[in-house]
Design a protein around this nucleic acid. Structure first.
Length: 318
DNA sequence: CAATCAACCTGGGTGC
DNA sequence: TGCACCCAGGTTGATT
């Protein structure tokens, strides 16, 4: 279940591994997961270079630009206002849903489980510093080396995840405007307080609403409410200011812990190099039903809220 | 408006 | 061993 900390961990890995690589091919065993279609995406992104990777909510944003040698040509084609705006030419928006993975491998590496889409990457690299040309001029030597090629593999057991091509800043902004503030970045206490006061839904479901707060999924919602000692079933609007503050702070603590431990590899999650995270070793209540509460030693209970597994300590959380 | 629920998928687990 | 069934959870969209 890649939530904010998991996607953030993958993002940091991808940044180290694939920036500057050029997309040379896309293969899809599961073309339905590529939007609007494999054909269109291939047509638009092959030849572009990965310029920047960002995370927003639970989404990965892979920004692509024309490679250096084509930039002059592209600039000539654009009008002035486009020049001003477009630092990037296309963006691949990736949602991993529950079982998605983004793995960076070498082309010859053994196939990964549930491999659905493979993006072939190539890098022209600086080989030998500068070479002296005949007239005393110097220039860099770029050489494509197959041994340096990589694959970005999108693996997804349940095929709920997707990769979507976004072609402009406006389109991206329109999509991203549907998501609430980032809990570790621009979620202010006053906004949070106002939001909780505005809904009678169980506070746990309020935390999961991506339109209002982005990035929190089932694991971190459960653990946040345990840390805040709040019963997940309580109507959000019924929390006192002190309790709202406690939930607000707990969300920060739990998400930061998730990032610190490189995510929770409870079932499927792996980082960009295929490594497990460790937050599952630090679950406070998630998946701990029947086990002892770390605070009072009582039994952690499992119930359903909004159809989803919910874990809490009946004695500590009320 | 809000709440509920099926649908999207696959594999692992359970009960018979 | 085989088979029917349920369950996991992020998100959308239809229905009440």
């Amino acid at each position: 279940m890649p939530e904010l900390p998991e996607v953030e961990t993958i993002k940091k890995g991808l940044e180290k591994l694939v920036i500057g690589y050029r997309i040379v091919d896309i293969l899809a065993d599961s073309p339905k997961q590529i939007l609007p279609s494999l054909k269109v995406v291939k047509g638009e992104v092959i030849g572009l270079e990965i310029a920047e990777i960002k995370r927003r909510a639970k989404l990965m944003q892979v920004f692509l630009k024309a490679p250096r040698e084509q930039q002059k040509e592209r600039r000539r084609q654009l009008n002035f206002s486009e020049k001003e705006k477009s630092v990037w030419q296309a963006c691949l928006l990736i949602h991993l849903k529950m079982t998605g993975r983004l793995l960076v491998r070498k082309p010859g590496d053994p196939g990964d489980e549930y491999q659905r889409v493979v993006i072939g990457l190539e890098k022209k690299y600086f080989r030998s510093g500068r070479q002296i040309a005949g007239g005393g001029l110097t220039f860099p030597v770029w050489k494509s080396g197959e041994e340096n090629n990589l694959e970005l593999r999108f693996c997804d057991l349940r095929k709920f995840g997707w990769i979507k091509l976004v072609k402009g800043r406006e389109e991206l902004e329109k999509i991203m405007a549907e998501f609430g503030p980032e809990p570790l970045d621009d979620l202010t206490f006053s906004y949070f307080k106002r939001y909780l006061a505005s809904t009678r839904r169980p506070v746990k479901l309020a935390l999961l609403n991506q339109k209002k707060i982005s990035g929190i999924g089932n694991i971190y919602a459960n653990d946040s409410l345990f840390l805040a000692k709040i019963d997940p079933r309580r109507p959000a609007c019924g929390l006192k200011e002190k309790e709202v503050k406690s939930v607000y702070q707990s969300i920060h603590k739990v998400l930061r812990a998730g990032i610190k431990y490189r995510g929770a590899s409870d079932q499927h999650y792996l980082d960009a190099l295929g490594q497990k995270g460790a937050y599952q070793k630090h679950f406070l209540v998630y998946k701990r039903d029947g086990k002892k509460c770390f605070s009072c030693s009582g039994k952690i209970r499992r119930i359903k809220i909004g159809g989803r597994g919910t874990f809490y300590c009946p004695r500590c959380q009320n």
